[in-house]
Design a binder for these strands. Sequence first.
DNA 1: GTCTATATTGTGATAGAC
DNA 2: GTCTATCACAATATAGAC
Lengths: 206, 206
Amino acid sequence: MDENEKNTEEIILDAAKKVFLRRGFDGARMQEIADEAGINKALLHYYFRSKEKLFDAIFITAFSQFLPHVSETLLSDKPFFEKIQIFVEHYVQMLLENPHLPVFILNELSRNPERVVNFFKLAGVSPEVLGKEIQKNVKAGIIRPIDPRSLVVNLISLCAFPFAGKPLIKAALFDNNEELYQQFLIKRKTEVTIFITNALKPEKTL
Amino acid sequence: MDENEKNTEEIILDAAKKVFLRRGFDGARMQEIADEAGINKALLHYYFRSKEKLFDAIFITAFSQFLPHVSETLLSDKPFFEKIQIFVEHYVQMLLENPHLPVFILNELSRNPERVVNFFKLAGVSPEVLGKEIQKNVKAGIIRPIDPRSLVVNLISLCAFPFAGKPLIKAALFDNNEELYQQFLIKRKTEVTIFITNALKPEKTL
DNA sequence: GTCTATATTGTGATAGAC
DNA sequence: GTCTATCACAATATAGAC
């Protein structure tokens, strides 16, 4: 699929996603989106009545992309720690390809929390099922006792924060070396898995 | 110290901090800051020439507040895991009192990474010293081998992300119940410590 | 120092030709 | 569908009275 074969609407959406992710809703300019798309402002309004509507169109896809599909992965019939490993690998890989996603979503949701309600039904997250799965493994002695919600939060925190805090961490711990930081992020696919695995492995019964 | 005893400059700074933390630089309006301070727009420019300058004035304090003083805590002569506990407790407590701080700092640094360079010298972070301290404990067999930078990143991730991602997590896992989520955040002071401790405790040698 | 006006620029949105 | 030109208003910033 060549870039040129895309219709105008798709070109606009691609451009809008780039600009909104870079600048956020308040910082984005319709002019910059038009430039990025190689068209003029008027056409943006022709396709999407307003800036708000255009934003909504890209936000919904960005949001569902960021929303980790924890359930799917953790509900397969593989061993528990293998599922953790698969999830981390997939999620970090997705973030490597969309590094601006975390801070964008976090920021927009923070400034406008009502959005989350509107878009949540579409994602189909089911914490109850997830909780049962985790507690099953706790009872079987495969993992230490832990609040399922804590585990999910820890999982996402360890994966997503290094992307959201990239400028800070890169400067503080990696001498602002982009390449070094990229390597660090890639290494996290295994590091996070190891860290969580160690945290969850039950005490050896002597 | 009564609110009325503060001079105008301090009143403006307090108001600016509130508004900038709520809305971000792009979303903040000078009018809203003036209203919050109970004065008019012109006076803002009298004290701080421009919006940018006013922002810089509040950013530097917000930034150094968010910057975890990992070094100080971890370099005391207490046992390693006790130091972790103290750090987590202090840091999460500070975030409970400034819940908007993480997403604000993350977002502003992401939109304008150069800032981090300007303000970093003032904070006095020294990763090298920190690295030695951690490696000392690794060699002594007190903790598992781990890249010091990974440990620091994990520590901050687990503490700060639940605040940055509050609207998302609250909706996804806590049915949008504010009180429940507040309890969850408070509980993290101990939960994070336990999680990290378990992850770092060396394998029992049989 | 603090205020009321006002200047000036930026930006989302529309009108209308092609 | 796509463009140029323009409107309408919002927001930063300044002038000048008190």
